[in-house]
Nucleic acid binder design. Sequence first.
DNA 1: TTGCGTGCAAAGGTTTTGCATGGCA
DNA 2: TGCCATGCAAAACCTTTGCACGCAA
Lengths: 144, 144
Amino acid sequence: MPKTVYKTKQQELLFTYLRQMQGKHFTAEDVRLHFEEKKISIGIATIYRQLEKLVADGKIQKYFIDDHSAACFEYAGEDCTEKEQHFHLKCELCGRLIHLECNELKELGGHLKTEHGFVINPLRTVFYGVCTDCLKKQEEEEDD
Amino acid sequence: MPKTVYKTKQQELLFTYLRQMQGKHFTAEDVRLHFEEKKISIGIATIYRQLEKLVADGKIQKYFIDDHSAACFEYAGEDCTEKEQHFHLKCELCGRLIHLECNELKELGGHLKTEHGFVINPLRTVFYGVCTDCLKKQEEEEDD
DNA sequence: TTGCGTGCAAAGGTTTTGCATGGCA
DNA sequence: TGCCATGCAAAACCTTTGCACGCAA
């Protein structure tokens, strides 16, 4: 993964998009569509290559949320520090992606480290399960 | 996802394979190769369709371990009960997949349920991070 | 001028799908 | 016999790669 050496117009456009998308997640296709709507043409290969570099630099995170659909990316923000890290919860029923900041969950990291010698990467880990809303719906259906 | 109605030879062959692979994970390609070695031909489409049904029935679990490589499947066993559930740890450096059974981690599920109304599916959730061995290697490199 | 970044198109790998055939009940 | 399951090939999908060109430094 080669380092960024030259500054290009495409890079700058992408950075602008990233700042807009802070805290949100997006796919390579989302990026392409965003610029297509603005009548700006950026090749999908360029988008992938730029995103790859940003991932390598730790500027953005790459997730695999859904089974075999596109990868999701997320911009961590200008000053990405450990305190801002969060976990992702993905509802298997409605597909909703929930950002979860919880100190108790950070103890999970400590436990895994201490007891299992494993340092978890919360920025890549996604918890799958069923969200509150879908649980309610399930219970209602059982009542029928 | 249609239910299984007829019993076929291919189904039975697949079940036999699953029993052999209990506790191990495998891809659709692994299944195909296994039968190819035995001079048994099962179409890859059939394998995918059967695995899909088994996932829908909850007989096997489907994981996405690596970025954009093949999906991994795992047979939970004949009498799959909650106590046998385990989490997966995936080392982002060496690629090792670790099966982790840990009661403390089960408290994680309780916490997510109680505090966040989210019921985690441990059979699908994969924790990404760095394993003990790779951590040691990293530390050794820092000493140089 | 040097060589990195870009864009296009093609290739790559995994999974899904259409359709005719085969086989279970 | 009716209809599901299979197999093959083609398509779909996301992503990567090869190559020629453009552009930053």
